[in-house]
Amino acid sequence: MNKTVYTNIFGTFMLKGDKVIAKKLFKNLTDRKNKLKYEKEYLKKSVEKADSDFVFPKDKTFNELFYKFNMDKTKKDLIKSVRTDNLINQAINNIDDLNRVINLLSKRLREWYSLYFPELDLKIDDNEAYAKIVSTKKRTTLEKEFGVRTIGSDLSTEDVNQMKSLAKEISNLIKLREEEKNYIEEIMSYHCPNLMEVATTTIAAELIEHAHTLENLAEMTSSTIQLLGAEKALFRHLKNKRARCPKHGIIINHPFVGTAKHKDKGKAARHLASAISIATKVDFFHEGTLDNKQGKLLVAKLKKQLNIK
């Protein structure tokens, strides 16, 4: 049987069949870069040639080395694996969470505070303003401001303070949501400034979130981008041709599509998707420093195409 030389993650071996007859174990992961040197030593010694049949004997020590070296490598890979895309995805998903939580808590606050001053719910639609008023103003002041005599019950300070605490928390969450939006804008301004320029911050982030990475988005065709986020409707259409083919996904929320007349929405979505596709490619494949010039040009062109002032 021929002798062969074989190198894996933890050493260089001279093998005969699956028997190790000589070995050089690496000191650590980086020692592996010397493998050519070690292999050469064995190749001199009447060994046929390097071979990689991947056969290896079962041996307690070798098993432990497989484990140890791979754990070290995997740990390094995991540490390296976090990218700007991951940060954008977490933040955009969290904004979604915050939207839901803020709505939920605001509904509760409105119901709760209405026991005390139901007139406010009728006067103030905006949740942010509502929470702010509850946490900062007294009922007597509000009665004067709105010129009403309330039909709410008189409650103890203790009871009202609990409502005010909730209102304060809601205001804090709204502040947090603003901070996260700014944070996303900040990291996207160097990660994908052109995409952001064309798609707007939130939609750009949602597109990345949907594609998982900027790289995936850069590799998509513009017709895929156009339908990103409409997978369910698309799936229905593919399964059953009678179901309508969707015209747009996430990008429907873009002002250029949103404000277009109904019959023009498809056209707007198509042009927008194509501009987004170009901008994403610019951002992903660029070399050197990145600015948003291309994005600005694309927006100008889009406005012309869609007759937007």
């Binding site: 049949d53 056969v55 290896f56 497989f66 490598k73």
Partner: peptide, 30 residues
């Protein structure tokens, strides 16, 4: 899986794309 492998030392976790065996072939065996 990495945390699980801390307890179970017969599990060797590898972060890789199965479509590219050349990137992990040296880390495993037959």
């Amino acid at each position: 899986l990495y945390f699980l492998a801390h307890d179970r030392k017969n599990i060797v976790p590898i972060l890789a794309d199965c479509n590219k065996p050349e990137e992990y072939d040296y880390r495993i065996c037959k």
